[in-house]
Design a protein around this nucleic acid. Sequence first.
DNA 1: TTATTATATGAACAAGTATTCATATATTGA
DNA 2: TCAATATATGAATACTTGTTCATATAATAA
Lengths: 115, 115
Amino acid sequence: MHCGHEREHELAAKRAAENMPSGEQVERVAALFKAISEPSRLKILFALRHGEMCVFHIVEAVGGAQSAVSHQLRLLKAAGMVKARRDGQNIAYSLADEHVVAVLELACTHLDCKL
Amino acid sequence: MHCGHEREHELAAKRAAENMPSGEQVERVAALFKAISEPSRLKILFALRHGEMCVFHIVEAVGGAQSAVSHQLRLLKAAGMVKARRDGQNIAYSLADEHVVAVLELACTHLDCKL
DNA sequence: TTATTATATGAACAAGTATTCATATATTGA
DNA sequence: TCAATATATGAATACTTGTTCATATAATAA
């Protein structure tokens, strides 16, 4: 017997194994969080809370090289966190939907810090 | 003039720069998401939704080597996602608080998949 | 068309991270 | 105390990822 809580833990383990999301689903969730787990990308999201911006202004708001910001925007877009819209010479980025803000706020609540 | 939406974007950029969280705060949020951005760690969290479990049963629920699971548990604990409680020979892990489940559910909603 | 501006992208390198293996610590039972 | 079991941890390796540099694409202005 591996532990004193044989019954409850084993039951939980059984339920957990049965209800474990598929590998593909787990990876999709992981990819989503990975997209928002890097400081430079997070800064971009924090910035976009204040409204749509083109790359030039994002660079201005978050600092760093244009190339780096562009790469990060590509990843954020691939992860479905931001959407892009061409506007003449510029490309305007904005948050994909309200979930993005919600998850950021939830994280800040968890950390007990105000956004 | 870098873009046709000079006024709005510049205003947004200004507000964004002014309200940008400190580097330390951004890194704390990033660290939190990083903790839950790896499939193996996510599986552990998904498993623990079904109740407290000792390491043995977590290994049973998520698969993989005991050593690997133990390392992941250490990271999850350091990130404040799970808490540990010694119980005799075993150590029982459980989710740190309700925010953990909330953020997982929010992610699944965003991805339009049921948990 | 050519020059200029805005943005994207490929390749290379550096930094970070997950896993494995071997071993250490801690608790319990004999 | 000694053996057995549960869990943790250090080191090494392999893999992933962020940034930079140079360059490419796309739109506009001249």
